[in-house]
Computed example of a mutant assay.
Amino acid sequence: MFHLIKLELKKNKLGWFFKGAVLANIIILGFLCMIPAIGKSEGEQTFKTFTDFFMISGAFVRGTFTVFAAVLISKMIIDEFKNRTILVMFSYPVNRKKILSAKLILIFCVTFITMAISNLVVIVGFIGLNQIFHLTSAMNLTIDHFFVGILNLMMFSLATAGAALVPLYFGMRKYSTPATIISSLLIVMVTCSSVGTDFSLASIIYIPLGLAVIALGIVAGAIRKIDRIDLN
């Protein structure tokens, strides 16, 4: 399985993904710096605590890479079925289930790792810029709060990386890239939206966990049916 994952990684050349991740981090960090700056100009404190900041920054990161995961699903699975290039891999003396499993494991791992690293980059970047430009003075951060916040974000990232596989179901129905991307946007709306000023769905880990369980069922069903798919 590990050999198949390495082959998938070499075949798909994910340089574009990591370049996009770097650009996304810069944009997210820019937005997070603009929010308190605009609030400060209006005499308001946007980030009253680091808990608020962790929640908002985490929602930005998870929302962004949920869509990135859908693009990976589209390029690595949906397009190969649609264009029938998957037939080349299915002609190898390797079980189809292992091939599809390797693709999905790679997508999950890449999504989780980029989410985790991006959370760290954005948080450390904001703390550094805040020290220089004094974007907000309302947040008091201790080492304990920092590590608790990071651990919480890692748990959210793990659950969201699983939930990000849900678009596989919609994409595989008619091998549709638009359906894959649109379904990922719906997941972002469900997991990262806010209701009013004091309540946010982004703070409820049970939502991405529930979607991750659904995704597990979708993945299991897709792997089980892969031998019955006729591409001829």
Rank of each mutant, 00 (worst) to 15 (best):
H3S: 12
L9N: 08
N12M: 06
K13C: 03
K13E: 08
G15R: 05
W16S: 10
F17G: 11
F18V: 12
G20I: 12
V22L: 13
L23I: 15
A24C: 06
A24G: 11
I26L: 11
L32D: 07
C33L: 02
I38V: 14
G43E: 15
K48W: 08
F50H: 13
S57M: 14
G63E: 15
G63H: 09
G63C: 13
T64I: 12
A70W: 02
V71W: 05
L72Y: 02
L72N: 04
K75P: 06
D79H: 03
E80M: 07
E80D: 11
K82A: 15
T85Q: 11
F90N: 08
V94H: 06
V94I: 10
N95I: 04
N95V: 08
R96F: 10
K98E: 07
K98H: 03
A102Q: 03
K103S: 09
L104I: 14
F108M: 08
M115I: 11
N119R: 01
V124R: 01
G125C: 09
I127G: 04
I127W: 04
I132E: 03
M139H: 05
M139T: 03
N140P: 04
N140I: 08
L141M: 13
D144P: 05
H145V: 13
V148Q: 00
V148M: 07
L151R: 10
M154T: 12
M154G: 02
F156T: 14
A163V: 11
A163I: 07
L165M: 08
V166H: 03
P167I: 11
F170W: 12
M172S: 13
R173A: 13
K174R: 09
P178V: 14
A179W: 07
I181L: 11
I182M: 13
I182V: 15
V188I: 13
V190Y: 00
V190E: 04
V190H: 01
T191K: 02
V195T: 07
F199E: 13
I205R: 00
I207Q: 02
I207H: 02
L209H: 07
L209R: 05
G210P: 10
G210K: 10
I214D: 04
I214H: 04
K225T: 14
I226K: 01
I226D: 07
D230I: 15
L231K: 01
N232L: 10
